[in-house]
C-alpha cells in the first residue's frame, strides 16, 4: 500500500509538471475554450515531456550506478 501511494504521488507530480510546462508553452493567450490547436500542442508537449522524463531517468540512474560501482572499487 505504501508502494501504491508512492506510485500515485509520483504520477501526480508528473501530471502537475506537465500541466505547468505545457500550459505555459501551448496556451499563450487563454481564450473562451481550449482550441483544438491548443489541444494538439498539449498532447504533443505531454508526449515530449514524458520522453524527456524517461531520458533523464535513464541518465540519472546509470550515473548513480556508475558512482556506486567506482566507490566500491576505490575501497
Amino acid at each position: 500500500q505504501v508502494r501504491n501511494e508512492l506510485a500515485l504521488a509520483n504520477a501526480q507530480e508528473l501530471i502537475n509538471k506537465i500541466n505547468e510546462k505545457c500550459f505555459s508553452k501551448c496556451i499563450t493567450k487563454p481564450g473562451n475554450k481550449l482550441e483544438s490547436s491548443e489541444q494538439t500542442c498539449v498532447a504533443k508537449c505531454m508526449d515530449r515531456y514524458m520522453e524527456a522524463w524517461n531520458i533523464v531517468s535513464r541518465a540519472y540512474i546509470s550515473r548513480v550506478q556508475r558512482e556506486s560501482n567506482s566507490q566500491g572499487e576505490s575501497l
Binding site: A11, I15, I18, N19, C22, F23, C26, I27, K29, P30, G31, N32, K33, L34, E38, Q39, V42, A43, M46
Partner: peptide, 21 residues
C-alpha cells in the same frame, strides 16, 4: 477576462492531460 479564462483553460488542460493518460 484573461484571468477568468486562464483559470478555466488551466483546469481544461488538467482534465485533458488526465483523460489522455
Amino acid at each position: 477576462t484573461c484571468l477568468t479564462n486562464c483559470v478555466e483553460r488551466f483546469l481544461d488542460t488538467s482534465l485533458f492531460i488526465v483523460k489522455r493518460l
